[in-house]
Design a binder for these strands. Structure first.
Length: 484
RNA sequence: GCGACUGUAGUCUAGUGGUUAGGACUGGAGCUUCCCAAGCUUCAAGCGCGGGUUCGAAUCCCGCCAGUCGCACCA
């Protein structure tokens, strides 16, 4: 199994570890080791570089992970993240209690207390839809982690954020003012989010504590049909998997302008699809055929998302195309919801025009992207294992090797290491044969090896060895940086 | 959360009531002027956790934790 092989490398070399492992582990939680931390940071930096540069009015902010209950009343999470569940006493299947009541009694169960639902189930002898057995008491299952803030007694109910996005909506008013009232405005947050998954399967794919990179773009809905830079991407062929292709599984290459003309998707949305694809194909170097945008059906997407395509990458270890992120046109759902719940005016007034800005959300799961990079670029070539990570995300840019551990070689190698360390993460290794040291670096994705040998002492040149081709060439020490 | 199966160094694995728990790979130190996993010497590292049965438990029983699969869940 490929996921075992990747997990093997990840554990052995220090990408990720099960959390709290010496106490038996903790399902749905993982720690990042030294390589994983380097690599994730690089992915995040590449993400920042790519998306924040789309517009000079896009910035990163940082918000708290803990927020009071009312925030999630306003966001809708209290209502939508809180499912009343009942379990069959006989076959142990679980069902949404409110759905059963609505179905059997044909009455709304909205806002109904759990006690009342339990009573209704019992009084009307609503049976288990699967085996006819008796249903047990209704319990709320909340996907959010609830915590209490403050000393016991007067503590306030709060939650760990289930997505980073809310921070951008909550600071919208201040951010908009400090950025001097211009739209579009982008607020990015890269950070942790928490969801109390019932059963976090699939190893590293569904976590209870995870990292997100999200960009909320606030804009005037009247401008959605255009984007000032649309012409720059109008001929780009996008990898689209629309609903009507579900049965065939085929991905269509559709140019940006055709998407606009024939599919009626607004240019503002398409522009960002193109930039997302650029990130995956040009920056992350994923093979084109592994990438697609998947259109979600009305059932699959949240009611407030007017347009929603997921970003998917074919990930062998996870068994197919997997969601890496999504592009969500959320309209004024977020700011409108918070305006209603908080009583705070969140509309803007631009040259006499008053409106609540709409939101286009670019949302990515960092950990999933991290895992998928390992998956896509890992190869077992028989006599060596190699992860052909693109330079921008490889934990180390180069390994520095003195051919032998002899006085002068070591001294020169240390100097090379020190000077390259100024701009790159580099790794120094003087133990084992030179071949073994190359292989060690291949396995963690280091693109280059720099070897200091006896010739170096004569003419100041070193060997640069390239990871994927294993080719070597000599360059002067002062030219190394140009060659890696 | 339910059911089935599973858990021996970092990895793979031998061991079915009495073993100094064995091996391979990996890792560390050293030898070899060493450019693609050579070899030699040497060191380190393990029975998931907790109870119970027994004179004695990696081995049998129970609970927990974790993993895989199925069901449910995935706003």
């Amino acid at each position: 199994m490929k996921s075992d092989e990747i997990m093997d490398v990840a554990l052995r070399r220090g990408f990720i570890f099960p959390s709290s492992e010496i106490y038996g582990g903790f399902s749905g939680f993982y720690d990042y080791g030294h390589l994983g931390t380097l690599m994730r940071r690089k992915w995040e930096d590449a993400w920042r570089k790519h998306y924040l540069r789309l517009n000079s009015n896009f910035f990163e902010i940082d918000a708290t992970n803990i927020m009071p209950k009312n925030v999630f009343v306003g966001s809708g999470h209290i209502e939508n993240f809180n499912d009343p569940l009942t379990e069959c006493g006989k076959c142990h299947s679980r069902f949404r209690a409110d759905h059963l009541i609505e179905e059997f009694l044909e009455r709304s169960a909205e806002g109904m207390a759990t006690d009342e639902m339990s009573k209704l189930l019992k009084e009307n002898s609503i049976p288990c839809p699967k085996c006819g057995g008796q249903l047990l008491d209704v319990k709320m299952f909340n996907m959010m982690f609830e915590i209490s803030v403050g000393s016991t007694g007067e503590s306030e109910v709060a939650y760990l954020r289930p997505e980073t996005a809310q921070g951008a909506f909550l600071t919208f008013k201040r951010s908009f003012n400090t950025l001097r009232g211009k739209l579009p405005m982008g607020l990015a947050i890269v950070g942790r989010a928490y969801r109390n998954e019932i059963s976090p399967r699939q190893g590293f794919y569904r976590l209870r504590e995870f990292n997100q990179a999200e960009l909320q773009i606030f804009f005037d809905p009247d401008t959605i049909e255009d984007h000032p830079n649309f012409d720059s991407i109008k001929d780009v062929k996008l990898r689209m998997f629309p609903l009507q292709n579900r049965s065939t599984g085929e991905v269509d290459d559709i140019t940006a302008s055709d998407l606009n003309k024939n599919y009626g998707i607004p240019k503002f949305y398409i522009y960002h699809l193109a930039k997302i694809q650029e990130f995956y194909l040009d920056k992350m170097k994923f093979p084109r055929e592994l990438f697609r945008f998947r259109e979600l059906s009305a059932d699959e997407r949240a009611f407030y998302n007017k347009i929603h395509w997921d970003v998917e990458v074919y990930t062998e270890s996870l068994g197919g195309y997997k969601e890496m992120g999504g592009l969500h046109y959320r309209t004024d759902h977020d700011l409108g919801g918070h305006q209603n719940a908080s009583g705070e005016k969140l509309d803007v007034n631009i040259e006499g025009k008053k409106f609540i800005p709409h939101v286009l959300e670019l949302s990515f799961g960092v950990d999933r992207n991290f895992w998928t990079l390992l998956d896509v670029f890992y190869k077992d070539e028989g006599d060596r294992k190699v992860i052909s990570l693109p330079k921008v995300v490889a934990p180390f840019r180069a390994g520095i090797f003195p051919l032998q551990k002899k006085g002068d070689l070591e001294k020169v190698a240390k100097n090379v290491y020190d000077s390259l360390s100024e701009c790159y993460d580099v790794f120094y290794d003087d133990s084992g044969s030179i071949g073994r040291r190359y292989r060690r670096q291949d396995e963690i994705g280091t693109p280059f090896g720099v070897t200091i040998d006896f010739q170096t002492l004569e003419d100041n040149t070193v060997t640069i060895r390239e990871r994927d081709s294993m080719d070597q060439h000599r360059v002067k020490i002062e030219d190394i940086w140009k060659n890696i």
